[in-house]
Structures are given as structure tokens and as C-alpha cells.
Design a binder for these strands. Structure first.
Length: 530
RNA sequence: GGGCCCGUAGCGCAGUCUGGCUAGCGCACCGGCCUUUUAAGCCGGGUGUCGUGGGUUCGAAUCCCACCGGGCCCGCCA
């Protein structure tokens, strides 16, 4: 059984409505590593639905947390100084670097959230700032303040240096300087927490002493207490989280105890997961080593990212490389699709597992028929040869038997893939895979073509204009022309590539030439031969 | 100091929870074919001390213990 289904089975067995929580701190661009969180939560929701259990997936933006570091690209040049001023501010209160977004949070969060539907993700979105400001957290905050002593004892079990006697689990928002990370709560009474803005290790305080109304969001619970409080507030029964929280004595450990003892809440079923790296490097919002959901959708089908996440166990580290290895990755996905549709063979013991991974990779329901489409590898060449001419592309794919009596849907899927491939070639493909037809034939290129090669080009041009070659026949024909010209086939091919691409290699010549406009090819070959 | 993950073919991995066919898959590679350059074709081939050592067992990649190597997380701050 797939791990997603094991979790949903365990949850369903407990009974009642299941709430699967996910979420992150909006500390910069939200990248595909963060997608783990929501994708897992949503997949469990889906699995629960399949077994008839009630479930809801949520995504919680920690947008009321303080900015501890200025993230990329705001840490560059003039912006850096401007944003350094906002260290310690709750993200939600930091301005956007561009006027088309409401604020810092909107700027970083929107591209992520807006992309979720394209990945088939259906989650309810919550905002930490909204939760605090609306007073929804007030009751639980009061409980936490009342029982600060017990909470302190729980936390101290895991700390080297115990928290001070008068410690309170509350981070007030300094009314004077606007920071939420610099004020220390001193005591509380009624709805008010008295504080002093003393600063912390990354930003200094303003020294202000004031009072924060915790029913109005003038501060927030400290993380280790906030998390279990949130479980209680939203009735969270399951939550995937990064390995940083999963450490013994980490926030899940203390959260578990606080949830049970203070908030009378069963802690959620944990799903710790590993990070996703980018070309072997850890992704980092603050350093700009990221790959975002919109970036993904530019060059790949959404199913592929789901596949990346669900193909292996959550505790397995995953690496994503949008370069050459991406083609293999695509092939693997296509293969499991074929296995699912019984078009490819796999070990009997594997078919069920592979099929389930395929299902989980889908953004919606699985189609009954497997769509016909080119491999991504092929698409990456074809799109360059036809330069956006759909009809030509379809014809070539028919000739190549990639498409056999294609339906509208087949063509749609294939075109989509061609567009993605063309973006991929542009953005991520290694240079040697990229080619483009020369608009003009520069003299410098022409001069690299020998007398004998010219003779050959001229004859090929003549033959093409007088006859419609099938790709393979043309390919063969080039060999015979090379023979007549008294040169090696390789030299003949090189001349063709030079004339069209300005370099000595390219896609398989017969298919390549037949994929191009005939008149253009004839004209160009003649031009090179003269 | 504490914890987690990983170690299986040249590379990337599945299989480990729940011990049981002859340890699989993709790519690469090798051989052959397509008169056929090429990262777009086809067929065939497994190239392996399952990190090491010990234990449990009729039986271990799988469970237990120790160790080695790699990566990561936490350690007042997600």
C-alpha cells in the first residue's frame, strides 16, 4: 500500500472529520520544496475521500511571523538597505517591492497559491495574521498565559538553559517600532500583556514599554506554543512537516505534550518529510536558489511534480534537476503511465504500486484512455524544427507514428507538451540540444562549405524540389548523393547542418529536412551551394 | 551533545514497515539490426561482497546490535 493510503487508512480508522494541515512561513519565495507540504496534505484528503471518510486539507500561511532575514531578491542592491529596516516586522506589515502586490506576503505568496489549482490541489487557506487579528486565537492565548508555568516546565525538559521564572509564551508586537520579535512579555492581566522592546540577536529593540491586547492580535504566541494551539483551533488531525520539526525535542515533540496537557487535544498524525534539492543544492529562499510552481508550469506538466513527491517515501530526499536529467525524469513518468494503462510491462508485484503512484500524480481523475503524445525528448527537438507551426508538427508526428488517428484530446495534449518543451529548451536545456534555423546564411558559414559539398547540396536541393521524399528516403538519398559527390556521408550531413543551422551537427537529417518548409530548404541549399 | 535520513549494477533509484520465487526498474554500457553521421528507431544482454562485522531465524537487502561512510536537522531563535 502506498504511504499516503496507509496514513489515510489510519486516520479513517480513528473516525470523525479529518483535518490535514500544511503551511509555511512566508519568508521569501515559496518553492517546490514547500509544495511537499500541501501536496501531501491534499493527497491524504483525496485518499480519505476515496474511502468515504470526511476530510479537509488546509494551508496555513505563517504571515505574522517576524522577518529574520531579508530574502532574495530583496537583499540585493538598494532594496537591501530599505528592507533591512523591516527586520523583526511581521511579514504581513512589510511593503511589497512592487506596486502590483498588496504587501510582502502577497508578493511572495500569490504566485504559489495561484498555482495550486493547476496542480489539482484543493486546500482551504488560512492566514496567521487574520487568525490573530480576528481574535480567534484569544481564548487559547489566554489558556497559554494562565498555564505559562506548566508550559515552561514542558519546554525546559528539552532545554539546556531553562526559561526564566516569569517567562510568558507570548511575542508582543511593539506598538512603537512595529517589530514582533523584539519585545519581551513581562506580565499579563485581563486582555493585556505588558512588554518591553529589548531586541534580539538579529535586530535591536527600541526600548519602548507598552501593553499589547492579545485579543486583537497585538502579538502572537511563541512558535512552540502556537503550533499546538493551532491544532486545537482548527481541529488538526494530521500534519506533514519538514524534518526540522521532527527532531527529538523539536517543536513537534514539545507540541505533542503541550497539546495534550494544556489544550486537551490529541496531537496530529505526523508525516515528517525530507527536503527537495535543486541540482544537488539545498533550496534557499533567502539565497534565491529556488524553483517555483509557476516556473514548473512553464516547462513541465503539473503531474510531474506530483510524481516527484509521490513516487518515493516522504522521508526520502529528492533532487530536482531541470537540465538534462529532466528528460529521463519525464521518460520515467511516461513509463508509469504506460504501465497504468497496461501498455508497458512491469513486474506483477509492482503494477499495483506503480499504478497508485500514477493515480496520485494526476491532478484530477485518471482518463480512461491514455492520450497519445510525443516523448518530451522528441518534443524538445520537434518544437525547434517546426518553430510553432502546429499543423506541421502534427503531420510529422503522424508520419513518425507518434500519433495514430489522433483525437482532439491527443492533439491538445501533444501541443501542450510541445509548448512546454520549447520553453524548456529555451530556459533549461544544455546548449548542445538547442538549435535554431539561421534566418540568413552568413558568408562566414558559407565559406566553410567545400566545393564538393556544394555540389552535393545543389543536387539535394534539386532532388527535393522535384520530388516529395519520405523522411527515411531522403535520409538514404543523402548517402547516395554523398557518394556521387565523392565525399563521406558525414561531410554531406555537415554541409546540410551548416547551411541550415550554422553548425556541423543537428537532428537526424531526413526527418529534420522534411519537417521544414520545402521551398525554404531548396532556396537555402541553393544559396549555400552557389 | 542529541536526533533523523541515506548506503542495493557505472549513475539514479524501487524493494526494508509486514523476513520467503533465481534481488528488480530507468538511464548508461555491451552486442546485433535499420546500407545510416546524430542525445528521435528496433531486438538481445545484468555487468551485484544489497556499506562492514556480528546476532536472531529453517531462511535476512529486509529484524536486532555495533561500527564505517555520506547528507541533513536541532541545540533559547521554525
Amino acid at each position: 500500500m502506498h504511504w499516503i493510503d496507509k496514513v489515510s487508512e489510519a486516520l479513517a480508522k480513528k473516525g470523525g472529520k479529518q483535518v490535514i494541515a500544511s503551511g509555511i512561513s512566508i519568508s521569501g519565495h515559496v518553492h517546490i520544496g514547500h509544495a511537499n507540504d500541501v501536496f501531501i496534505a491534499d493527497a491524504i484528503r483525496r485518499s480519505l475521500a476515496e474511502r468515504g471518510a470526511e476530510g479537509e486539507a488546509i494551508w496555513y500561511a505563517d504571515d505574522y511571523d517576524p522577518m529574520r532575514r531579508v530574502p532574495w531578491p530583496l537583499n540585493k542592491d538598494a532594496l537591501a538597505e530599505y528592507y533591512t529596516h523591516y527586520l523583526g516586522f511581521p511579514y504581513i506589515n512589510i511593503p511589497s517591492p512592487d506596486p502590483s502586490h498588496k504587501n510582502f506576503v502577497d508578493y511572495f505568496q500569490r504566485p504559489f497559491v495561484d498555482s495550486l489549482p493547476a496542480f489539482g490541489i484543493n486546500v482551504k487557506i488560512h492566514s496567521g495574521a487574520e487568525v490573530y487579528r480576528s481574535g480567534k486565537m484569544a481564548g487559547l492565548t489566554r489558556t497559554a498565559l494562565e498555564r505559562a508555568g506548566e508550559i515552561r516546565k514542558i519546554l525546559n525538559k528539552f532545554r539546556k538553559e531553562p526559561l526564566p521564572e516569569e517567562w510568558l509564551p507570548y511575542d508582543p508586537l511593539c506598538e512603537k517600532c512595529g517589530r514582533i520579535a523584539t519585545a519581551v512579555a513581562i506580565y499579563w492581566d485581563g486582555n493585556m500583556v505588558k512588554y518591553k522592546c529589548v531586541g534580539n540577536d538579529y535586530v535591536s529593540g527600541c526600548g519602548h514599554e507598552g501593553e499589547a491586547d492579545f485579543t486583537k492580535g497585538q502579538g502572537k504566541l511563541t512558535w512552540r506554543v502556537e503550533w499546538p494551539a493551532r491544532w486545537k483551533l482548527l481541529g488538526v488531525t494530521c500534519e506533514p512537516f519538514g524534518k526540522d520539526h521532527a527532531v527529538l525535542g523539536g517543536s513537534y515533540d514539545t507540541g505533542k505534550l503541550i497539546a495534550k496537557k494544556i489544550f486537551k487535544k490529541d496531537p496530529p498524525h505526523p508525516i515528517p518529510y525530507e527536503w527537495v534539492s535543486l541540482k544537488g543544492e539545498a533550496m534557499s529562499s533567502s539565497h534565491g536558489i529556488i524553483f517555483t510552481l509557476p516556473q514548473w508550469l512553464e516547462v513541465a506538466e503539473p503531474e510531474l511534480l506530483r510524481f516527484l513527491i509521490f513516487r518515493s517515501k516522504p522521508t526520502k530526499a529528492k533532487d530536482f534537476d531541470p537540465g538534462m536529467p529532466f528528460l529521463d525524469f519525464y521518460d520515467e513518468y511516461d513509463l508509469i503511465e504506460e504501465v497504468y494503462h497496461r501498455k508497458a510491462k512491469a513486474a506483477k508485484s509492482k503494477v499495483a504500486q506503480i499504478s497508485r503512484i500514477y493515480e496520485l500524480s494526476q491532478t484530477g481523475n485518471v482518463g480512461k484512455k491514455m492520450p497519445q503524445k510525443p516523448s518530451f525528448r522528441f518534443a524538445a527537438v520537434l518544437c525547434q524544427a517546426v518553430k510553432g507551426d502546429e499543423e506541421k508538427a502534427v503531420n510529422i508526428m503522424k508520419k513518425r507514428k507518434v500519433l495514430a488517428r489522433p483525437t482532439k484530446a491527443d492533439i491538445e495534449v501533444s501541443m501542450k507538451r510541445l509548448i512546454l518543451a520549447s520553453e524548456w529548451v529555451e530556459l533549461h536545456a544544455p546548449a548542445n540540444l538547442r538549435f535554431s534555423i539561421l534566418d540568413r546564411l552568413p558568408g562566414e558559414v558559407k565559406s566553410r562549405i567545400s566545393e564538393k559539398q556544394r555540389w552535393g547540396l545543389k543536387h539535394i536541393a534539386m532532388d527535393i524540389s522535384s520530388k516529395d521524399f519520405a523522411a527515411i528516403d531522403l535520409h538514404n538519398h543523402i548517402y547516395s548523393v554523398a557518394g556521387k559527390a565523392g565525399i563521406k556521408p558525414g561531410e554531406m550531413f555537415q554541409a546540410i547542418y551548416l547551411a541550415l543551422l550554422g553548425r556541423t551537427s543537428g537532428p537526424r537529417a531526413g526527418t529534420f529536412l522534411t519537417a521544414l518548409d520545402k521551398d525554404f530548404v531548396v532556396k537555402r541549399l541553393n544559396e549555400a551551394a552557389d
